[in-house]
Design a protein around this nucleic acid. Structure first.
Length: 263
DNA sequence: ATGGTAGCCTCGCTA
């Protein structure tokens, strides 16, 4: 059995006590982190190594940043998503560890979608990134290996995945084009681990810091664990752990995890 | 139509 968790921590240094405590308490075999907001040299490596983790960090100053932490050795395959000529944003790291291929993904937010009637570069970048991910996943599926894509996809897949779908039509997280690109990716044959285990439950992974969204439980499900068919065959459990979102100095996201093993 | 909060390290950007 291997337990894989994903968490957008919104600055690993600002969040260090919270992230260390959760990691110690829940002891995932593999932990995928996003929004580190620091360069690799500034990542608090010793603190995680003391908990028994190996690290693969792709960092960047101030923005973005992703990592794979694993209790087993990590063979890194990609430090950026293929096909991004000149794209140097730290949003993707992929490797093989604990008998499974994993990727830690921080997909572009894409807001605002338009400016003075024109589609923005930010939204175009998001849609292009989703298309690049589609092409790469198509290649990964051809290997017929078990793999798990985990991270902040910045896509609300369905109306049930947000508190107020009507209010989100013009947001890049729920825009019809974002959702279509995400569906195209899923239709390659990926399994949304949360949906596979929880049917039509309405549960969120992110709550805006603003307007008391957490207190009112006005959130969205944008952090996902997407499984290849060979990984989905092994899916034993998946859940969202709301507890960290309610702590002092919380990230605006909370962790999602799954367990793969013989059933 | 706007602003609401958080992090980073600038007087604004990203989310």
């Amino acid at each position: 059995m291997v337990k894989i968790a994903s968490w957008n921590v919104n600055s690993v240094r600002a969040r260090l006590p919270n992230v260390l405590a959760w990691t110690r308490d829940t002891a995932p075999d593999v932990l995928l982190l996003q929004e580190l907001k620091c360069e690799a040299d500034a990542f608090p490596a010793l603190e995680f190594e003391e908990l028994g983790y190996n690290l693969a960090v792709v960092g960047q100053k101030t923005y973005n940043g992703v990592a794979i932490l694993s209790k087993s050795a990590i063979e890194i395959d990609h430090r950026k998503l293929p096909g991004g000529d000149g794209d140097d944003q730290a949003r993707y790291v992929e490797g093989f560890t604990s008998g499974v291929r994993v990727a830690s993904i921080y997909l572009p937010n894409g807001n605002p979608i338009s400016d003075a009637g024109q589609r923005t570069d930010k939204f175009a970048y998001k849609l292009a990134w989703l298309e690049r991910l589609y092409r790469h996943v198509r290649d990964l599926l051809a290997t017929e290996d078990a793999f798990v894509l985990g991270g902040d996809f910045n896509v609300i897949p369905e109306p049930i995945d947000v508190h107020d779908p009507e209010g989100w039509d013009k947001d890049a997280l729920y825009h019809v084009d974002s959702r279509a690109a995400f569906r195209k990716l899923m239709f390659l044959g990926l399994t949304d681990a949360f949906r596979a285990r929880h049917g039509h439950a309405q549960r969120y992974t992110w709550w805006d810091y603003r307007s008391g969204a957490w207190a009112k439980d006005q959130g969205a499900r944008i952090d996902h664990l997407l499984l290849s068919p060979q990984a989905a065959d092994q899916l034993a459990a998946c859940d969202i752990d709301r507890r960290p979102r309610g702590l002092d100095k919380a990230s605006d996201h909370t962790p999602i995890w799954c367990e793969l093993g013989d059933r």
